[in-house]
Every structure is written in structure tokens, then in C-alpha cells.
Write a protein that binds this DNA or RNA. Sequence first.
DNA 1: CGGCAACGGTCTACTTCTTAGACCAGTCTT
DNA 2: AAGACTGGTCTAAGAAGTAGACCGTTGCCG
Lengths: 130, 130
Amino acid sequence: MTDLPKQRVDTPTNFPPFEQPCPIRDVLDRIGDQWSLLLLESLAPGRKRFSELGREIGDISKQMLSRTLKQLEQDGFITRTVYPEVPPRVEYELTDLGQSFRGPMQALVQWADANHRVIVEARNRYRGLD
Amino acid sequence: MTDLPKQRVDTPTNFPPFEQPCPIRDVLDRIGDQWSLLLLESLAPGRKRFSELGREIGDISKQMLSRTLKQLEQDGFITRTVYPEVPPRVEYELTDLGQSFRGPMQALVQWADANHRVIVEARNRYRGLD
DNA sequence: CGGCAACGGTCTACTTCTTAGACCAGTCTT
DNA sequence: AAGACTGGTCTAAGAAGTAGACCGTTGCCG
């Protein structure tokens, strides 16, 4: 920090960022995380409550569940409804936007389903000739 | 660790994980990270070399670029070709599997493009009534 | 009445992932 | 001889995710 030979920085990741306001980037950064797609897929059949979603996904932490749902709500994919009952009940449901996303999502899911075998095979083949 | 009152664990994230070998999960976990989709999209028009991809994406670190490309190669989405030239040249290209993924990916990209406005608006609206 | 369970979160400490950027090897240019 | 170019790898530091304790309210059970 004090007297490092800082000059001549070789190739210091000098990729000029130039696609920040790119709509694809913006949208993909949101739904392209570990959980968003899974949650949207989980909500496709209909409204579900918090713990129900947690149970379906299985290995998501409550914090990420809560956080991801909040993001999806912010971005207008889902609505959050709180019923002032005792134990509290909160239900999540796809909005029209969320519904409209089911199309492309289905395309993705179907492709994944259809090509899963091939991918696993590629993975094993690669492992073999490493 | 020694004498913590460990009993009565309230609700310790007791969601039983039950979808590990789910093909959708498996595929989505791979391509649903920060960079994979972007790279596949970047490679859709044709073969590109390492630094070219880095430049196009802009804000990806070399390590993640390298790592993500390796994963995509392992899973059979792309091929990696090294030309034993002097400065070394390495080109990446979609395989048939990768090509076949362009369909669902296009659906996603088009949706993203078409609905970007709506999402941004939702985001701003939410910010307002927070 | 005491104690606990149910539910939807939040908070904290710990672990894992990602980033920044230095470094490397071999050749061509200046 | 000093740098630049290329495709990586390595390490330290910073960001993100996880586990699980904790909370408040009410109803059920003994």
C-alpha cells in the first residue's frame, strides 16, 4: 500500500465496460441468479405461501427466500399478500408480468429437461479425459 | 460450542431437500449464474476468442471468464480450440448442443428486451412507496 | 396456567464465491 | 533491452450466501 512498484500493470483486466444499461443484462442479472427462476417456476401453477415455497425448493435459506421474493416483487413479477391472521399467512402470486414470463421460462425448462442427459454425459466424458 | 442451550430449535430452516436430482435444477444451476447466459449469447453469432469475450461482456474478471468458459466446455455447450501461435490464440465456439440452446435463449432475450421498461417502472414505483 | 408449536421474517457469525490485480511464458516490435 | 501481446493462474481482500438462533402473537394441550 505504501511503496508498491505499481507501474507497468501488464494486463490488468482492462476490459472497458460498455454495456451497463443493456436491457438483457439488466433483466438477466435479476432472474439469472440461483433462485429466481426456481421460484417463478414454483409459482407458475398458482399462489403459494412462504414456507410452502421453501419446502418445494428444499435447500434455500429463509434469508435468500425472503430476499429473492422481495426482489421479484420489486421488479413486478409477483405480488405479496399478507393475511392478518394468527400465525401470519403470506401468499405470493405471479402478476401479469410474471405470467407473461412463463412462456420463455417454459422454453428453458423444456430444453433443460430434454437435454439433461446429453449434458450429464458431456460432463462425465470430460471428467474422463482430464 | 461447549454449553449452548441447544434445545428447542424453533424453526431451524427445516425444509427437507427433496429435489436434488431434478434435471431443471441441475441445468439451471449451471447456466443460471451471473455469466453463462451472457457468454452463450455472446458466442451465438460465431466463434470468438478469450479477450474478445472479455471485452464484450465488459465487467467480468478474467478468472470468472476462464472458469465459466471451462464449465460451459465441460457441459458440452462450447468447444475450446487452442492455436499454438505466438501470442497464444484460443477460440470458443458453440457446439450443436450450444446451438440448440439458442432457441430458448432467444425467447428469454426477446422477453427481456420487450419487458425491460415495465420492470424498470415497477422498480421505481416500489422505491417510491417504500 | 405453563410450555410449546406454527408462521414469516430478521439478525449474526461463519463460510463460500467473486474480484482486483500481480505474475508468467514466449515471441515480435521499437 | 524494454515492453507489449495473449490466455491464463494465483493470492489477498471484499461481497454474497448459509445456518440457525431469535421474535411476536395466538391457539392447543396437559
